[in-house]
C-alpha cells in the first residue's frame, strides 16, 4: 500500500572559502558607445555566472545586461580569480566587479561633473545616463561622457579591482572565529509516497524556499535550486558508488542510478526577501546550498509516511523496506 508523508529540513550555508583567502579580481572597460566589457578570470560552468556578473557590472554603470560583454577564462587575458567554487562567484567576483566598475564610473563622473556643473560625488548613473543625484532632467548620456573622457580628456574609463571576503582565523583548540563573511539559509519540504510492500519512495513534490540575498537574476537562481534538488534527490534515494575490494563496481550510468526526468518531482521555488549589505547589491550566493537540505527533508517525509528512520543514505527501496519490516517485527514482538 502507498503511504503519504511530508517532511521538512532547513539549513545554513556559508559563501566563500573557510578562512582561507579566496580573492577575485575584475577589470571593467567602458566603450565609447556606452557599452562595456568585463574581464573575469572565472569560468562559466553552467550556472549562468557570466550573465549574473554582466548584470552586476551593468547595474554599477547604469547599463542594461545586454550592454555588457563578458570575457572570461583565459590566463593570458583575464585577471586572477579563485574560480567557480564554494558558491562564491556572485558574492566575491561580484564584489570585485562592483569595485572595478565603480572605478571606471568615477572616471566618467570626473568627466561629467564639469559638463553638469556639479561635483563628481553629486552624480549617479541611471538608464544609460549620468545624472545629478535625484535629478534625471540634469543628465548626460553615458556614451557621450565616455567619448569625451577618452578622446578629449585622454582618460579612458577602465577600472580594475579585487575583493577578498574578510574573515577571522579560527582558534585551533576551539574553532572559535569568523570563518566566513556571510551565510545563506533555506528550507525545503517534501511530499512523498512510500510503497510499504516494495519500499519504493516516490517524491510527489518539493517546496524549496531559499535565501540568496538579492537574487541578481531570479530565473537563474530558480535553475540552481531545481538543479540542486535533483542532485539532492539522487543523494537521498539512488546514487551510490559501490566498491568491491577497492574496485568500483558500478562506474557507469547504467548502474550508477542518477535521477532521470521521470524521477524528479514537481518543484515549487520561493525566494525570501533579503538584502546583505556586504554583497553586490545585497546578493549572497545560490549554487551549493540548493542541494543541501533535500535528502534530509525526504528522509523526514519517509519517517512521516511509514514511521521508519533511515540512518544510512541512500534510502534505496530495499533499505526502506528492510526498515519497515524491522519495525513490523519489533511491533509484533512488543505485542507478543
Amino acid at each position: 500500500m502507498k503511504k503519504r508523508g511530508r517532511g521538512m529540513a532547513c539549513m545554513w550555508y556559508p559563501i566563500g572559502f573557510t578562512v582561507a583567502a579566496n580573492p577575485s579580481a575584475a577589470t571593467v572597460k567602458v566603450n565609447t558607445d556606452g557599452t562595456a566589457t568585463l574581464l573575469t578570470g572565472t569560468v562559466e560552468t553552467g550556472q549562468g555566472a557570466l550573465t549574473v556578473l554582466a548584470q552586476i557590472a551593468a547595474e554599477t554603470l547604469g547599463l542594461a545586461t545586454d550592454d555588457v560583454h563578458v570575457v572570461s577564462g583565459d590566463t593570458d587575458v583575464t585577471p586572477m580569480d579563485t574560480g567557480a567554487i564554494a558558491s562564491r562567484t556572485t558574492y566575491v567576483t561580484g564584489n570585485a566587479i562592483v569595485r572595478a566598475a565603480e572605478k571606471a564610473r568615477d572616471i566618467l563622473f570626473e568627466a561629467a561633473a564639469p559638463l553638469l556643473n556639479v561635483k563628481p560625488e553629486q552624480l549617479e548613473v541611471r538608464d544609460r545616463r549620468i545624472q545629478v543625484l535625484g535629478f534625471p532632467a540634469r543628465s548626460v548620456a553615458i556614451d557621450k561622457v565616455v567619448h569625451h573622457s577618452e578622446t578629449v580628456l585622454g582618460n579612458p574609463a577602465i577600472g580594475s579591482a579585487s575583493y577578498n571576503p574578510p574573515t577571522v582565523d579560527m582558534d585551533p583548540e576551539t574553532g572559535q572565529g569568523k570563518p566566513f563573511n556571510t551565510y545563506v539559509y533555506a528550507t525545503q519540504i517534501a511530499d512523498v509516497e512510500v510503497d510499504d510492500e516494495t519500499g519504493e519512495v516516490e517524491i510527489l513534490k518539493i517546496v524549496a524556499v531559499h535565501d540568496c540575498g538579492t537574487p541578481i537574476n531570479p530565473m537563474l537562481v530558480e535553475g540552481q535550486i531545481q538543479g540542486g534538488i535533483s542532485m539532492g534527490v539522487g543523494f537521498a534515494l539512488q546514487e551510490e558508488i559501490l566498491f568491491e575490494e577497492g574496485r568500483q563496481i558500478n562506474p557507469n550510468l547504467t548502474n550508477y542510478i542518477m535521477p532521470t526526468s521521470l524521477d524528479m518531482p514537481d518543484i515549487e521555488v520561493g525566494l525570501v526577501d533579503n538584502y546583505d549589505p556586504t554583497g553586490p547589491f545585497g546578493a549572497k550566493g545560490a549554487g551549493e546550498p540548493t542541494a543541501v537540505p533535500t535528502a534530509a527533508c525526504i528522509m523526514n517525509a519517509i519517517y512521516d509516511a511509514v514511521g521508519v528512520r533511515i540512518t544510512a543514505l541512500p534510502a534505496t527501496a530495499e533499505r526502506v523496506l528492510t526498515a519497515i519490516n524491522e519495525k513490523r517485527a519489533a511491533e509484533q514482538a512488543d505485542a507478543a
Binding site: Q226, G227, M231
Partner: peptide, 11 residues
C-alpha cells in the same frame, strides 16, 4: 528520460 541532465532538475 533517455537524456540525462545534471544541472537543471529538468524543471
Amino acid at each position: 528520460a533517455g537524456n540525462l541532465c545534471r544541472c537543471t532538475g529538468y524543471t
